[in-house]
Nucleic acid binder design. Structure first.
Length: 419
RNA sequence: GUGGGCGUAGCUCAGCUGGUAGAGCACUCGGUUGUGGUCCGAGAUGUCGCGGGUUCGAGCCCCGUCGCUCACCCCA
């Protein structure tokens, strides 16, 4: 009987050893600046009530209209695999009453997100993001710190070929004024059907079109930044000032568009130059109406999401990954069946001292076991047979140069630490 | 969802104008008594993505399909 193989679902990105080590490292570099800034972990479900995203992310967004993994569960509830992180965090903050305590609420998260898009380089149906949210304080200094935390993560990775673009999408008042003028401008353009449909959903989208003829047509379109209210303008100027003081370089992109409806005010994007079409490695911004829309208080918030998969691709492109591979400290080879139990116990003891100890399994020849030890990258090897057990002495062999010393079995841990 | 490119051993690939599959690396074992990385020898591994067609005969040609990949779109 031969069974057919089952492949992974389309578009998922998996990280297997040895590559998983690089993934783990990248994720840690990206999130450690948030921990150091006092952000605390929030561990959330990967699926939520569908209406959370419909309302939170926005009915007009592509994410909601055509990219969500939505299904009915056994209780007849409509469930969606989370396509982004902010809506879920806000839901949990409201539900857990975190907004009733000390503000700002500062949390970080890490995990998988899901969008049913056509996969391509750097774009997967299940992808990994780390992110932070700071909720409840509307202070431009906080905006600057949030951006600085993201930037620090990328710097931790050793990345250089990326840039930070910022803009302000203004408050509701600024946007309403702009929208009127933009709609009438776009109405006079000669657009194809698909583009017209996108324009009707959200006219800002047309700013993001990559086709030269569209870019040209939009050259004289009204820019949101020219419609900012006094409050929005002052806030944005202050953010830029803080970034300057922090020595974080940026360019103001007046035509930046974000695909999630909740963004307001300060909005930013990190773009890497070596990644092909999917070049955004992180992005975020302020979302002033979101909590209220989700049934909570009217509090402002700001946060970001960083793409772990893409950051890893960027680190590979810039060749900044650390080169050391997985190494155990010692590889123990039991000689014969009767020594296995003794060696398993010895391995446990060595591990309890904080060392990484592996055991040779299977009844292979000593030569085969030595090969396995070599491939494991172990720094030391010890062969343990009856004579070692009886004498209490073992040859501790250093794999890098083949030298060995005789040590007492009971003092193996000390020898590992010393050498 | 729309296009382009590609699908041969675990990996990277070769396969002449169609004659029923190969290399390198990796893997396993061995080169005599309990010690790896080099070297030598031996071995295992493929429904040539899948289905159909043309042909005496298809990995090579045709059609379809699935998958991967890149781009559009969108975004992390």
């Amino acid at each position: 009987m031969k069974f057919e193989k089952i492949a992974a679902p389309k578009g998922v990105r998996e990280y297997l050893p040895p590559e998983s080590k690089a993934f783990e490292w990248v994720r840690e570099q990206l999130i450690s600046p948030a921990r150091k800034a006092g952000y605390q972990l929030m561990e959330l479900p990967v699926f939520e009530d569908t209406s959370l995203f419909n309302r939170g992310v926005g009915e007009s967004t592509d994410v909601v209209t055509k990219e969500m993994y939505t299904f009915e569960d056994r209780g007849g509830r409509s469930i969606t695999l989370r396509p982004e992180g902010t809506a879920g965090v806000m839901r949990a903050v409201i539900e857990g009453n975190l907004d009733r305590g000390q503000l700002p609420v500062k949390v970080w998260y890490s995990g998988q997100f899901f969008r049913a898009e056509r996969p391509q380089a750097g774009r997967y149906r299940q992808f990994y993001q780390v992110g932070i949210e700071a909720i409840g304080i509307d202070d431009p200094a906080l905006d600057a710190e949030v951006i600085a935390i993201a930037d620090r993560g990328f710097k931790n990775l050793g990345l250089k070929n990326y840039r930070l673009e910022i803009t302000s999408l203004g408050d509701a008042e600024s946007r309403a004024a702009h929208r009127v003028d933009l709609l009438s401008y776009v109405a006079n353009l000669d657009l194809d059907e698909a583009t017209r449909a996108r324009a009707d959903l959200n006219p800002l989208r047309i700013f993001d079109d990559k086709r030269p003829e569209i870019k040209e047509a939009m050259a004289n379109a009204p820019i949101l930044m020219d419609y900012l209210s006094d409050h929005s303008r002052k806030h944005f100027e202050a953010v830029k000032g803080y970034l300057d003081d922090l020595g974080i370089s940026y360019t103001v992109n007046k035509r930046m568009v974000r695909g999630l409806d909740y963004y307001t005010g300060t909005t930013f994007e990190f773009v890497h130059d070596d990644l092909g079409a999917q070049s955004g490695i992180g992005g975020g911004g302020r979302y002033d109406g979101l909590m209220e829309v989700l049934g909570g208080q009217s509090l402002s918030g700001i946060g970001f999401g960083l793409g772990v998969d893409r950051a890893l691709l960027a680190a590979i492109a810039e060749n900044t990954l650390p080169t050391e591979r997985f190494n155990s400290d010692i590889f123990l080879i039991p000689l014969g069946e009767e020594m296995k139990s003794y060696v398993l116990a010895l391995a446990e003891k060595i591990r309890s001292e904080g060392f990484i100890a592996e055991v040779a399994f299977g009844d292979r020849s000593l030569k085969g076991a030595m090969k396995a030890a070599d491939k494991s990258g172990a720094k030391f090897v010890a062969v343990i047979g009856g004579s070692e057990r009886d004498s209490g002495l073992v040859e501790l062999k250093r794999m890098s140069d083949g030298s060995s010393i005789s040590v007492k079995i009971g003092e193996l841990q000390m020898a590992l630490g010393a050498r």
